[in-house]
Design a protein around this nucleic acid. Structure first.
Length: 818
RNA sequence: GCCGGGGUGGCGGAACUGGUAGACGCGCUGGAUUCAAAAUCCAGUUACUUCGGUAGUGUCGGUUCGAUUCCGACCCUCGGUACCA
């Protein structure tokens, strides 16, 4: 028998067994409860990083646990294969993005297999394959026909030196990452999806997601940002133009002292024709970054347009300013400014000497000092003419009613959420299946012509997408009128692919349809696991897609992911691992040195999944040490030969204690893995059990039987986490059937019974003594024993006992005077 | 800026519903074993202490018999911020 723990041999052998037995192949089976466990698929960047190891181990542990619960588990894996890094690698290494991507997939697949993850590889998919992306082209056309997609101009980051569009990530301090040129905003026509049509559903259906973390639901709700307000029209003096603004605070309407429009607003552009200062300001704004973080943290600047607007109620004239913090693509591109009651407006007004007019007075005892800051709370209206004395809430209706009567405003529900711009001016993505005809306009590619294949044999040189200079790709005939036309050369946002892959995994081999009945069998995903960084965008887009597919009759149910687990990052020295910081740890080296089980055990033990995980070489060694200890102890136990049957009534107190600890551990581990997903505490409980068992100094036959039971439980409990070693140990312990097919054990309640329990005794909340009492001792007995305790008496002395608090099974707190 | 997390020994973390702060592991210290080392095993390990205790969970304040846990203010840090995935 093998004395030394040799993970390389064991793991190869066990993985081969799984492969031969097709252990993880998922077949639809209506007899069993289905369980779809999915970890977010990786971008094939080249090699696995620690975050992947963590993510996929968590998923695998959960999947294997549910398998042991008798469920029919589907756990697939695939590749989020389109994206920017492939193009960057192509420029750097002069390889085509496709070839680079496929090589990476092959390498990373092998790495995942080496980790012993229980995937059904027959369902593997890569989003860059035409068999996959044809169906999102197909869906896009269906949505086009439904009117759920449209084209409009929107701003992108333009690098004037490289003549290319940059991602926000590629803009560093306002400059292009490669050229160093100052980035400009450029407006180009792009496709949008009407996610705002689904805003209400996306918000309301969050209530269905009991299995999601509250923080993620809160972030999504805030991102959607539903608000109820008033759209108000201001007339522009000496013009037929009107300026519409949206406000959630109509109660402050009488305090408006100026209006602010985006620099790109038509009114600003028109005024700039005869206003050099304004034109210069608009040009300056054009050089700003497009990201919200950059915009919001930039200095707030503005220039008067020279236009005046008429206040819709008072008729007073207020100036119209152009300001860099007002976004054209957001709402109406204009806001009303109430410096007295909005902090940003307040600072802007002070900076430019604009009037500040208080119209809200505090209703309670809030402080209101307009020489220091704006008063942003709601309150009671003042300086508001006929509305004076109304509360903020009451004035909403009064003001809305008056404006509605005068046709100068209407109630509106608004969302912070903006429609989803899906066009990317990049090569390595799904071609947008639209043909632009000079006569017919945008015409969808006929279904029979799908997929629109992306040419894969190309050279990428950094001067933009190669298909934009490939007539053989873009030249075509209009499907409607037959005249010369051009294909879209833009590709989809890669969030497109990752928004529905979870559904395609149920039927990846279907070449006739996007999805089939199997989608309705397996969905929703029972457990989805991925990085917290996806809390808003990916998860919102996937939820949106699910509703789109539902409305196409492709899936049932409103939501794609029943339960969500968001994992934290893997850090080294408190920092995110990254190539640029040079602090990466290669998982391959970890596996090569210690084996997959040690890697998995460390990842699960070092921190609970939702927290960030601090890398530690030493702690990895500790995990390895534990497995070695378990291995050695089991071998030693097994070598002593077969065990006799347990005779529970005959056990000594020590052996009873070990049995109790065995089942206490099982109770805790079942809860920790099944409900809490705190694998670290589950492992700690198993370690405690092992410590107790190895300390047992008893060579009797009954002791060996107790140890056999404890070891069997240990192997079963650890098998989802370290499946290879457990497979082997399970055999050694005398089992024919593979542990992967074993049932999760049942708790023996009789083993848990305790006749004495330990209680803490506090005096005035401070721990002063401990005592053991009968488990069924009544309150009076417990109080009397506590007060009588020698050490307790020292602290009570001759003081008066005011009261005694007894928390059953836990503690007694004696409250004394003085 | 805004939205959402996090902050506990030398380190990773535990304490699940307001009830023993520091489980489990790492590291360190001492011991056993060894010619010696590695490995392994055993014991100890929050700080201070007059050895009775006292203080202690980012900071300051509050509620409570009792607060890591609840409330208020603040500091630091991480994730997201719509073209990184």
């Amino acid at each position: 028998m093998q004395q030394e723990y040799s993970p390389a041999d064991i793991e190869a052998k066990v993985q081969q067994h799984w492969q031969q037995e097709k252990t993880f192949r998922a077949v639809e089976d209506n007899e069993k409860e289905k369980y779809y466990c999915l970890a977010m698929f990786p971008y094939p960047s080249g090699q696995l990083h620690m975050g992947h190891v963590r993510n996929y181990t968590i998923g695998d542990v959960i999947a294997r646990y549910h398998r042991m619960q008798g469920k029919n588990v589907l756990q697939p894996m695939g590749w989020d294969a389109f994206g920017l890094p492939a193009e960057n690698a192509a420029i750097k290494n002069k390889v085509a993005p496709a070839a680079w991507t496929y090589d990476n997939i092959d390498y990373m697949r092998a790495q995942l297999q080496r980790l012993g993850l229980g995937y059904d590889w027959e369902r593997e998919l890569a989003t860059c394959s035409p068999e996959y992306y044809r169906w999102e082209q197909w869906l896009f056309i269906r949505l086009f026909e439904k009117g759920l997609v449209y084209k409009k101009t929107a701003a992108v980051n333009w690098d004037p030196v490289d003549n290319t569009v940059l991602a926000n990530e590629q803009v560093i301090d306002g400059r292009g990452w490669r050229s160093g040129a100052l980035v400009e905003k450029r407006d180009i026509p792009q496709w949008f999806m009407k996610i705002t049509d689904y805003a209400e559903q996306l918000l309301n259906d969050l209530d269905q997601l009991d299995g999601w973390p509250e923080q993620v639901k809160t972030m999504q709700a805030n991102w959607i940002g539903r608000s109820e307000g008033l759209q108000i029209e201001f007339d522009i003096v000496d013009s037929t133009e009107k300026l519409a603004v949206y406000t959630t605070r109509p109660d402050t309407l009488m305090g408006v002292t100026y209006l602010a429009v985006a620099a790109e607003h038509p009114l600003a552009l028109k005024s700039a024709e005869s206003n050099a200062e304004l034109q210069a300001f608009i040009d300056e704004c054009r050089r700003m970054e497009t990201s919200e973080a950059a915009l919001e943290t930039a200095d707030k600047k503005g220039v008067a347009t020279g236009l005046m607007a008429t206040h819709p109620i008072t008729g007073e004239l207020v100036p119209v300013w152009a300001a860099n913090f007002v976004l054209m693509g957001y709402g109406t591109g204009a806001v009303m400014s109430v410096p007295a009651h909005d902090q940003r407006d307040y600072e802007f007004a002070n900076q430019y000497g604009l009037a500040i007019k208080q119209v809200i007075a505090p209703a309670h005892d809030e402080t209101c000092d307009l020489t220091v800051a704006a008063f942003t709370e709601k309150g009671q209206l003042v300086n508001s003419g006929q509305f004076d004395g109304l509360s903020s809430a009451a004035s909403f209706d009064a003001i809305a009613q008056q404006l509605e009567q005068q046709n100068k405003g209407e109630r509106q529900v608004n969302y912070r959420l903006r429609d989803w711009g899906v066009s990317r001016q990049r090569y390595w993505g799904t071609p947008i299946p639209i043909i632009n005809c000079p006569d017919c306009g945008a015409v969808p590619v006929p279904e029979a012509d799908l997929p629109v294949r992306l040419p894969e044999d190309v050279i990428v040189d950094g001067s933009g997408s190669p298909i934009k200079s490939m007539p053989e790709f873009y030249q075509c005939a209009c499907p409607r009128c037959g005249s010369d036309a051009e294909r879209e050369t833009d590709t989809f946002d890669t969030f497109f692919e990752s928004s529905w892959y979870y559904a395609r995994f149920t039927c990846p081999d279907n070449s006739e349809a996007m999805l089939d009945e199997r989608a309705k069998h397996w969905l929703p995903v029972d457990q989805y696991i991925g990085g917290i960084e996806h809390a808003v965008l990916h998860l919102l887009y996937a939820r949106f897609f699910h509703k789109l597919m539902r409305d196409e009759g492709l899936v049932a149910g409103d939501e794609p992911f029943k339960n969500l687990l968001t994992q934290g990052m893997v850090l080294k020295d408190g920092m995110k691992m990254s190539k640029s910081k040079g602090n990466t740890v290669d998982p391959q080296a970890l596996i090569d040195q210690y084996g997959a089980d040690t890697a998995r055990l460390f990842m699960m033990f070092a921190a609970p999944p939702e927290q960030s995980l601090e890398w530690s070489d030493k702690a990895v060694e500790g995990s390895n040490r534990f497995l070695k200890r378990l291995w050695r102890f089991t071998i030693e136990h097994v070598e002593k030969g077969a065990c006799t049957t347990l005779i529970i009534d005959s056990l000594s107190d020590d052996l009873k204690a070990v049995r109790r600890q065995t089942y206490q551990a099982l109770t805790k581990v079942s809860d920790d893995i099944g409900r809490r997903h705190t694998f670290n505490t589950a492992i700690a409980a198993v370690m405690e059990l092992m410590n107790a068992v190895t300390k047992l100094d008893d060579n009797s036959e009954q002791a060996r039987a107790v140890i056999q039971e404890a070891l069997e439980m240990t192997v079963l409990m650890l098998s989802p986490i370290t499946p290879h070693i457990c497979h082997q140990l399970w055999q050694l312990l005398g089992h024919e059937e593979a542990v992967v097919n074993a049932d999760w054990p049942q708790v023996d309640d009789s083993a848990l019974v305790q006749d004495k329990i330990e209680l803490m005794i506090q005096v005035n909340g401070k721990l002063r003594a401990k005592m053991k009492v009968d488990a069924d001792a009544d309150k009076a007995t417990v109080e009397a024993l506590a007060v009588a305790d020698e050490n307790v008496q020292k602290f009570i002395a001759d003081k008066e006992i005011r009261k005694i608090i007894v928390v059953p099974g836990r503690l007694i707190n004696i409250v004394v005077a003085g």
